[in-house]
Lab assay of single mutants.
Amino acid sequence: EEPWTQNQQKLLELALQQYPRGSSDRWDKIARCVPSKSKEDCIARYKLLVE
């Protein structure tokens, strides 16, 4: 798996703010905001960050 770039991390953080918990299809929308990362990548990264 490719490491996360600073840019991808920033895009993930912005998308998390844009689509708060409870948004419909939240992770699909977030993944579309982060180039070359899947929905599963984004969820895994999020879990890593909040632990």
Score class of each variant (00 low, 15 high):
residue 15 A to Y: 01
residue 15 A to L: 03
residue 35 P to M: 07
residue 49 L to K: 14
residue 19 Y to T: 05
residue 31 A to C: 06
residue 22 G to N: 15
residue 8 Q to E: 07
residue 31 A to S: 12
residue 44 A to T: 06
residue 26 R to I: 01
residue 45 R to N: 13
residue 9 Q to S: 10
residue 3 P to M: 15
residue 16 L to S: 03
residue 27 W to F: 08
residue 7 N to D: 08
residue 47 K to G: 10
residue 47 K to T: 10
residue 32 R to K: 14
residue 6 Q to S: 06
residue 46 Y to G: 12
residue 44 A to Q: 13
residue 33 C to N: 06
residue 7 N to E: 15
residue 10 K to M: 08
residue 26 R to Y: 13
residue 49 L to G: 15
residue 7 N to H: 13
residue 25 D to A: 05
residue 17 Q to S: 13
residue 6 Q to E: 15
residue 20 P to K: 15
residue 17 Q to Y: 06
residue 35 P to I: 07
residue 7 N to F: 09
residue 46 Y to P: 02
residue 6 Q to K: 10
residue 4 W to R: 02
residue 37 K to P: 00
residue 50 V to G: 15
residue 7 N to T: 09
residue 39 K to Y: 01
residue 47 K to H: 14
residue 16 L to R: 02
residue 44 A to L: 11
residue 37 K to S: 01
residue 40 E to A: 12
residue 22 G to E: 13
residue 16 L to A: 09
residue 49 L to R: 14
residue 42 C to E: 00
residue 5 T to M: 04
residue 4 W to S: 03
residue 38 S to Q: 05
residue 43 I to K: 15
residue 51 E to Y: 15
residue 37 K to H: 15
residue 31 A to D: 00
residue 29 K to C: 09
residue 44 A to I: 09
residue 50 V to L: 12
residue 6 Q to D: 14
residue 12 L to G: 02
residue 46 Y to M: 04
residue 47 K to N: 11
residue 29 K to T: 07
residue 44 A to M: 11
residue 30 I to M: 00
residue 30 I to K: 01
residue 36 S to Y: 12
residue 14 L to K: 15
residue 20 P to V: 04
residue 9 Q to T: 12
residue 13 E to M: 05
residue 10 K to Q: 13
residue 29 K to Y: 08
residue 15 A to C: 06
residue 43 I to V: 13
residue 34 V to T: 03
residue 6 Q to R: 11
residue 26 R to A: 10
residue 7 N to Q: 12
residue 28 D to R: 11
residue 13 E to S: 09
residue 23 S to V: 12
residue 9 Q to V: 14
residue 25 D to V: 05
residue 10 K to Y: 10
residue 31 A to N: 04
residue 6 Q to Y: 05
residue 43 I to S: 05
residue 3 P to H: 15
residue 23 S to K: 06
residue 26 R to E: 05
residue 46 Y to F: 10
residue 22 G to I: 11
residue 4 W to K: 03
residue 39 K to W: 01
residue 42 C to H: 02
residue 16 L to T: 08
residue 15 A to F: 02
residue 3 P to E: 15
residue 17 Q to C: 07
residue 16 L to E: 03
residue 22 G to P: 06
residue 16 L to H: 02
residue 25 D to W: 06
residue 8 Q to A: 07
residue 15 A to G: 07
residue 50 V to I: 12
residue 48 L to T: 15
residue 29 K to P: 06
residue 12 L to R: 00
residue 34 V to C: 03
residue 21 R to K: 12
residue 34 V to P: 01
residue 10 K to C: 10
residue 42 C to T: 07
residue 42 C to P: 00
residue 2 E to R: 03
residue 3 P to W: 07
residue 8 Q to R: 04
residue 40 E to D: 11
residue 26 R to W: 03
residue 23 S to R: 06
residue 2 E to K: 04
residue 18 Q to C: 05
residue 5 T to I: 03
residue 43 I to Q: 13
residue 19 Y to Q: 03
residue 16 L to C: 07
residue 40 E to S: 09
residue 24 S to W: 09
residue 5 T to H: 06
residue 40 E to I: 07
residue 22 G to A: 11
residue 11 L to A: 11
residue 14 L to D: 12
residue 49 L to M: 13
residue 14 L to T: 11
residue 36 S to V: 08
residue 51 E to G: 09
residue 5 T to G: 05
residue 11 L to W: 06
residue 46 Y to E: 14
residue 14 L to V: 11
residue 51 E to C: 06
residue 23 S to W: 05
residue 41 D to M: 08
residue 46 Y to K: 09
residue 18 Q to N: 07
residue 35 P to Y: 06
residue 15 A to K: 02
residue 6 Q to I: 12
residue 48 L to F: 14
residue 26 R to C: 08
residue 49 L to Y: 12
residue 30 I to E: 04
residue 7 N to P: 10
residue 35 P to K: 12
residue 22 G to H: 08
residue 3 P to G: 15
residue 31 A to I: 01
residue 29 K to Q: 08
residue 24 S to E: 14
residue 38 S to P: 01
residue 21 R to M: 09
residue 40 E to T: 08
residue 43 I to F: 09
residue 17 Q to R: 11
residue 24 S to D: 13
residue 44 A to G: 06
residue 14 L to Q: 12
residue 22 G to K: 06
residue 10 K to D: 10
residue 24 S to F: 03
residue 44 A to Y: 05
residue 39 K to V: 10
residue 8 Q to V: 01
residue 27 W to S: 02
residue 45 R to M: 14
residue 35 P to A: 11
residue 40 E to W: 11
residue 21 R to D: 15
residue 37 K to A: 04
residue 13 E to V: 04
residue 36 S to Q: 13
residue 30 I to C: 02
residue 20 P to S: 07
residue 45 R to I: 01
residue 29 K to F: 07
residue 9 Q to L: 13
residue 12 L to C: 00
residue 31 A to M: 03
residue 51 E to H: 15
residue 33 C to V: 11
residue 24 S to V: 14
residue 24 S to G: 13
residue 34 V to K: 03
residue 6 Q to M: 14
residue 29 K to H: 11
residue 49 L to W: 14
residue 35 P to W: 05
residue 36 S to R: 12
residue 5 T to K: 02
residue 26 R to G: 04
residue 17 Q to A: 10
residue 47 K to W: 04
residue 5 T to P: 01
residue 11 L to S: 08
residue 50 V to P: 09
residue 44 A to P: 03
residue 50 V to F: 14
residue 47 K to M: 14
residue 32 R to A: 13
residue 25 D to E: 12
residue 8 Q to H: 06
residue 12 L to H: 01
residue 10 K to I: 05
residue 43 I to C: 09
residue 20 P to Y: 02
residue 39 K to R: 11
residue 26 R to D: 05
residue 40 E to Y: 06
residue 37 K to G: 00
residue 1 E to L: 15
residue 26 R to Q: 08
residue 15 A to S: 07
residue 36 S to C: 08
residue 10 K to V: 12
residue 32 R to M: 08
residue 41 D to V: 02
residue 27 W to K: 02
residue 12 L to M: 10
residue 8 Q to P: 01
residue 22 G to Y: 04
residue 18 Q to D: 13
residue 21 R to H: 05
residue 11 L to F: 12
residue 28 D to K: 15
residue 8 Q to T: 04
residue 45 R to L: 03
residue 5 T to R: 02
residue 36 S to N: 07
residue 4 W to T: 01
residue 29 K to R: 13
residue 10 K to R: 14
residue 41 D to N: 09
residue 8 Q to F: 00
residue 2 E to V: 11
residue 32 R to C: 10
residue 40 E to L: 09
residue 42 C to K: 01
residue 13 E to A: 06
residue 32 R to H: 12
residue 15 A to E: 00
residue 43 I to M: 15
residue 17 Q to N: 15
residue 10 K to T: 13
residue 13 E to I: 04
residue 9 Q to A: 03
residue 27 W to M: 04
residue 7 N to K: 14
residue 15 A to D: 01
residue 13 E to T: 06
residue 16 L to W: 02
residue 26 R to F: 06
residue 45 R to F: 05
residue 19 Y to H: 07
residue 14 L to P: 02
residue 33 C to Y: 08
residue 11 L to I: 06
residue 3 P to D: 15
residue 49 L to P: 07
residue 23 S to M: 13
residue 25 D to G: 10
residue 15 A to R: 00
residue 34 V to Y: 01
residue 27 W to L: 02
residue 13 E to K: 10
residue 39 K to T: 09
residue 38 S to H: 05
residue 17 Q to E: 11
residue 16 L to I: 14
residue 26 R to V: 05
residue 32 R to V: 09
residue 39 K to E: 06
residue 17 Q to I: 06
residue 19 Y to S: 01
residue 12 L to D: 00
residue 44 A to C: 11
residue 30 I to A: 02
residue 28 D to Y: 04
residue 16 L to F: 02
residue 18 Q to A: 10
residue 17 Q to M: 11
residue 4 W to Y: 02
residue 44 A to H: 03
residue 9 Q to D: 06
residue 9 Q to M: 14
residue 29 K to N: 12
residue 3 P to A: 13
residue 30 I to W: 01
residue 15 A to W: 00
residue 1 E to C: 01
residue 37 K to R: 08
residue 34 V to G: 00
residue 10 K to A: 08
residue 10 K to E: 11
